[in-house]
């Protein structure tokens, strides 16, 4: 088997949660033992509710947040062991698109300046800048007439196009998309999703698509990983997971997607309770307080990731 483009093994990120100087040190496990693989030209979705650690995972992959433990192998090289200088060079290959394009762009810079930033950072000769920028703008459906405008002069969708342009201008291998369409209106959202798919085809990109919206995710991804409280609970091919979700949490998430077809049977699993605080997670399986199938085993022992029906699941039900 060929090695995958990106392999993440047992990624862990702990944040120190020390409320005051005199308290004992406490840690919050934002990400706890996440493993995943990304193949060439593939899209993997990471879904979960707020606070499940999906964004932290994404940021760890670029080392915007330094992971505490674990390996991130990019083309076989462990990037967690790279020096800062080497890592900065490698950023050319892994880029990121952020949720709020307005937030992620300096309001005082023009589009040309914003798009030159990656070129300057990676020492592309200045003579090529304009050409590259215009070509990339073309790719994302904007044109050279937008070069000297400021971010606030654009609509939300156009701004996200600029955000995408900035991420692909260096022709990276991997783009981490952190909720790229959540801040957009439905009709614009579909434009951006289509754009992302086109770019993947034309530039051979691989995506890590982080989202809370399963509806969006099911449309664009090939494989999907479901996270709950910092842990991966189910990961596998999209079709398999959507057809027959195994983990009770995945089942609940999928059934909670509002269906826009009024005739679809509304047999919803409504989860009781709320997401527990990550600083004080439940024992055993972290999902057990909200799970309808919970047994004593779930309360005491943490389930292992197992291969079940063509995907991996961490649940005691499938022992």
């Amino acid at each position: 088997m060929t090695t995958s483009l990106l392999q993440v093994r047992d990624l862990e990120k702990r944040f120190r949660a020390q409320k005051s100087f005199f308290q004992a040190k406490q840690y919050v496990h934002a990400v706890n033992g996440v493993s995943l693989e990304l193949n060439d030209k593939e899209t993997i979705g990471i879904v979960g509710e707020s606070g499940c650690g999906k964004s932290t995972t994404g940021r760890c992959l670029l080392r915007l947040i330094e992971p505490t433990k674990g390996e991130i192998l990019f083309q076989g090289r462990d990037i967690t062991k790279l020096s800062k200088v080497e890592m900065n060079k490698l950023r050319k290959e892994i880029q990121m698109v952020f949720q709020d394009p307005m937030e992620s762009m300096n309001p005082k810079l023009t589009i040309r300046e914003i798009l030159s930033e990656p070129l300057i950072a990676h020492k592309i000769p200045k003579a090529q800048h304009v050409e590259l920028i215009v070509k990339t703008l073309d790719l994302v459906g904007l044109s050279e007439k937008h070069l000297f405008r400021y971010p606030h002069e654009f609509s939300g969708g156009q701004r996200q196009r600029i955000g995408i342009a900035r991420a692909i201008i260096l022709r990276p291998k991997i783009v981490v998309l952190d909720e790229p369409v959540s801040a957009l209106d439905v009709s614009v959202q579909s434009q951006i999703l289509n754009l992302l798919q086109d770019l993947q085809e034309e530039l051979g990109l691989s995506y890590i698509f982080i989202s809370h919206d399963l509806g969006v995710v099911q449309h664009i991804v090939h494989r999907i990983g479901v996270m709950y409280l910092g842990e991966m609970v189910e990961i596998g091919e999209k079709e398999k997971i959507f057809d027959k979700p195994l983990h009770p949490y995945t089942q609940a998430l999928i059934s909670a997607i509002p269906k826009s077809d009024p005739d679809e049977v509304k047999e919803r699993i409504i989860l009781t309770g709320e997401l527990p605080s990550p600083s004080n997670p439940p024992s055993g399986c972290k999902f057990h307080p909200r799970c309808m199938y919970a047994t004593d085993t779930c309360r005491s022992a943490k389930p292992e990731m197992r291969e079940v029906e063509g995907r991996k699941v961490a649940c005691h039900l499938y022992n």
Binding site: S187, S190, G215
Partner: peptide, 22 residues
């Protein structure tokens, strides 16, 4: 247009319809 641009089970694998412009 709004209904067609909402990603759904039935649109998987197909290109989403979208409303051009803003």
């Amino acid at each position: 247009g709004l209904i067609e641009s909402t990603p759904q089970q039935s649109t998987i694998g197909k290109r989403l319809k979208s409303i051009p412009g803003q």
